[in-house]
Design a protein around this nucleic acid. Structure first.
Length: 730
RNA sequence: GGACCCGUAGCUCAGUCCGGUUAGAGCGUUCGGUUUACAUCCGAAAGGUCAGAGGUUCGAUUCCUCUCGGGUCCACCA
């Protein structure tokens, strides 16, 4: 054995051996207890970062432990097409490298190229997972856009439609003019911005707004019903001079108006503001769209047509100023604006026809399942967050004007039911002749003819499904729920643990619970284990621009995967963020070297014993008479119980700490020093106690540090059977 | 506006759910050490009114209330 442990020599070999021998693939046995984790599929649009390394480590620790306690263990790996995120990444690349947009390629070619790009990333990622040591079952690996998922996903859509959970409606959506897509509420972030607040004259009234360019879409003025200043205006129609001549507005009273804001009067623009849209519904106001999906003003704005929102804001303001319509300008006004989470573009609220899921009753089922204890959260404090979100859930907009994703399984007879938005986003559709009866057909496969008029020119809804709609079904679609061979589903579903980041509790976990209960009648998993974000040593979020990124592959290369894994487990707790530094990884590398040298010491003493006495055959059950020996074995028993208990309760930080302390400070620093004299005198009992205790400890360390423990075990015992399939110490 | 989490050694964090011997670890600091593994090491030490105040209790870092400080999520800003 080398004086210093060299991970470079061992890690790749061990991984190949495990994989080739098929240890990652479970053998289904109805007599035994199953343990299943469906891996949260990483986005296949880049390489793995340290956050991936963290969750892969935690899941691998669970999997390796349960495999050792002889449960039938499935860890199903995957990759996510990630909808808008991947489309944006790929579009940027396309623009940069070829100066082309997706429209230049056309839908079919774009999807083909994007798939090529994604599959390439996916392969790189899979090898990175191997480097981390993830013992997942590659024979079952899944990709969210695998064609095999089309059928079950479409079937869920169809079922939801038939059960009345789906509807298509004109709704206010968050429109990102850059991504040219509607975003869910959760994909929008808010940012503080300073914008001028204009006080504009509307006939006898004055109101304050930061969006003068939307005034062409105003269809009412509103005040708070309790605001005494304006009581006698309520219900009246006023006439006001505007940029396009005289206009008439009804003054309505609505409690949503804040009397303290501006003058207490607001303009109501139902087509371009979420609150105004809601107010419009309450008061039956006209929805007059003046901004197009291209982010430019339309023909209803006369001379302003064709200007972007930003340009129009400046021009309308200055024109009104010239006409004397602007009473006052507050240039220090700070407000929050909605921006696209992915590309940071300012969101344009727009009305558009979209598919929605009625979520209320789905959420009620999901709340009940957690209340009844069918799903347990670790840490449990997240149940509160979950309940609050579920209780206040809004209907879920699941259509996306993207090309990259699962296309919505709806066909229209003719163009009547396609929205302007869809025709805008898909130039190919414009060429199609408009004939047909307008029937809407929801089916899991393309129908040959329209069931109503028998015509054959069915047009598929060009929109794709929100990526969370398909990944929300991941726990059962990956188990081939809808296929002939249902044994995986029967045996492993509901899965045991869903381990994922708390930041996607609502995006993903909540949706999986709702859709899982709806589609299968069962919860998709019994335990939700939430991990935190990996931050740098100072607690700052890691990002490339800040230069504080720890790249997992670089540190694996330098310190070994075991060191990184131990560093990601030690001193961390579920639900809270992990602060990681290179120093910590180095410290764990030192620990690895420590146990390596303990093994070297033991091996040396075995050789010494065999030279001077006889062949050393360890006896697991030997009860020594020496007090030091007895004491160590007693402490080992305690350790086994402690580690097992903490493994079972998912407290891996305690597991790592206890093993670390026992091996280094109990065994190496104390016991090994105590017995040096006895070993010199060929004391078999001392050697046996040392050996037996060390091997048991190494086994318990294997789930966290799989490579070095395998290598030590092989060097020391010469056994063929690797630790990965060894029984857990008792 | 609603809610959640965190505040423990110089730094980064465990421990608190289920109150009870000297409150732990890693890194850092100081002093000393090369006899059968390991300097990626060993021994020793310094360093904490467990954010603050009050309450419950024989006893509170732990439970309850409030305050201060830090962070996050959700809603909303016309």
């Amino acid at each position: 054995m080398d004086k210093v442990y060299k991970h470079q020599h061992t890690e790749k070999n061990w991984y190949s051996l495990w994989e080739e021998k098929g240890y990652f693939t479970p053998v289904i046995n109805p007599e035994k207890k199953p343990f299943a984790i469906i891996m949260p599929p990483p986005n296949a649009n880049g390489s793995l970062h340290i956050g991936h390394a963290a969750f892969l480590t935690i899941e691998d620790v669970m999997i390796r432990y349960h495999r050792m306690v002889s449960e039938v263990t499935l860890w199903l790996p995957g990759a996510d097409h990630a909808g808008i995120l991947t489309q944006v990444v790929f579009e940027r690349k396309l623009e940069k490298e070829e100066n082309k947009s997706r429209f230049d390629l056309g839908r079919e070619e774009f999807i083909r190229r994007c798939m090529e790009f994604t599959l390439k990333n996916k392969e790189v990622m899979e090898n990175q997972m191997r480097a981390i040591g993830a013992s997942c079952d590659w024979s079952r690996k899944s990709f969210t856009l695998d064609p095999k998922f089309n059928k079950p996903i479409n079937a869920t859509f169809k079922k939801l439609y038939e059960d009345g959970f789906l509807y298509r409606d004109l709704r206010m959506i968050n429109w990102c003019p850059r991504c040219a897509t509607a975003l869910s509420d959760l994909e929008v972030i808010y940012k503080e911005k300073k914008d001028p607040l204009y006080f504009i004259k509307y006939g006898p009234l004055t109101l304050a707004t930061v969006r003068p360019e939307t005034k062409f879409g105003d269809t009412a003025l509103a005040v708070n019903p309790k605001d005494k200043r304006y009581l006698n205006f309520i219900g009246r129609e006023i006439e006001a001079e505007g940029l396009l001549g005289k206009m008439k507005f009804k003054v309505i009273a609505d409690p949503a108006v804040d009397p303290k804001f501006g003058t207490g009067v607001v303009k109501v623009t139902p087509a371009h503001d979420p609150d105004d849209f809601a107010m419009g519904l309450r008061h039956n106001l006209e929805v007059r769209q003046v901004i197009g999906f291209d982010g430019k003003l339309n023909e209803k704005t006369g001379p302003f047509k064709g200007l972007t929102v930003r340009e129009a804001r400046i021009k309308t303001a200055s024109d009104m100023e010239k006409k004397g319509l602007i009473v006052k300008k507050d240039t220090e006004y700070i407000h929050n604006i909605a921006i696209c989470e992915r590309c940071q573009t300012v969101i344009e609220p727009m009305v558009s026809l979209q598919w929605f899921i009625r979520t209320k009753s789905l959420a009620e089922m999901a709340i009940k399942a957690v209340q009844k204890g069918e799903i347990r959260f670790i840490p449990k404090s997240f149940v509160k967050n979950y309940n609050i979100w579920m209780e206040n859930i809004r209907d879920w907009c699941i259509s996306r004007q993207l090309w990259w994703g699962h296309q919505i399984p709806v066909w229209y007879c003719g163009k009547k039911n396609l929205s302007d938005l869809q025709l805008t986003m898909n130039p190919e559709l414009k060429k199609i002749k408009n004939e047909g009866c307008g029937e809407i057909i929801v089916a899991d496969e393309k129908p040959r003819t329209c069931p109503k008029c028998q015509k054959k020119n069915l047009i598929r809804d060009p929109d794709t499904l929100d990526t969370w709609f398909s990944s929300g079904q991941w726990p059962y679609t990956t188990l081939n729920f809808d296929q002939e061979n249902v044994s995986d589903y029967e045996y492993f579903y509901p899965t045991t643990v869903m381990e994922t980041g708390y930041e996607i509790l609502f995006f993903w976990v909540a949706r999986m619970i709702m859709l899982g209960l709806y589609s299968t009648g069962k919860v998709p998993f019994k335990i939700v284990y939430l991990h935190g974000l990996v931050r740098d040593a100072l607690g700052t979020k890691m990002s490339k621009s800040k230069g504080n990124v720890i790249d997992p592959l670089t540190v694996i290369d330098k310190y070994g995967a075991d060191s990184l894994r131990m560093a990601l487990v030690y001193g961390t707790s579920p639900g809270s963020d992990v602060k990681l530094s290179e120093k910590k990884i180095e410290a764990m590398r030192n620990f690895g070297n420590k146990i390596w040298n303990m093994a070297r010491f033991i091996k040396m003493n075995i050789e010494f014993f065999e030279k001077n006495s006889k062949k050393f055959t360890p006896d697991q059950k030997y009860i020594p008479s020496d007090n030091d020996d007895k004491n160590l074995l007693k402490n080992l028993d305690k350790l086994i119980k402690l580690v097992t208990d903490n493994m079972n309760s998912y407290r891996f930080a305690i597991v790592s700490e206890k093993l670390y302390n026992f091996l280094w400070h109990e065994m190496a620093d104390k016991y090994m020093e105590q017995v040096k004299d006895r070993l010199r005198n060929n004391d078999w009992s001392a050697l046996n106690t040392l050996y037996v205790t060390f091997i048991s400890s190494i086994k318990m360390l294997h789930p966290i540090m799989p490579f070095i423990t395998e290598e030590i075990n092989k060097q020391l015992t010469g056994e063929e059977k690797p630790l990965i399939i060894s029984p857990w110490p008792k």
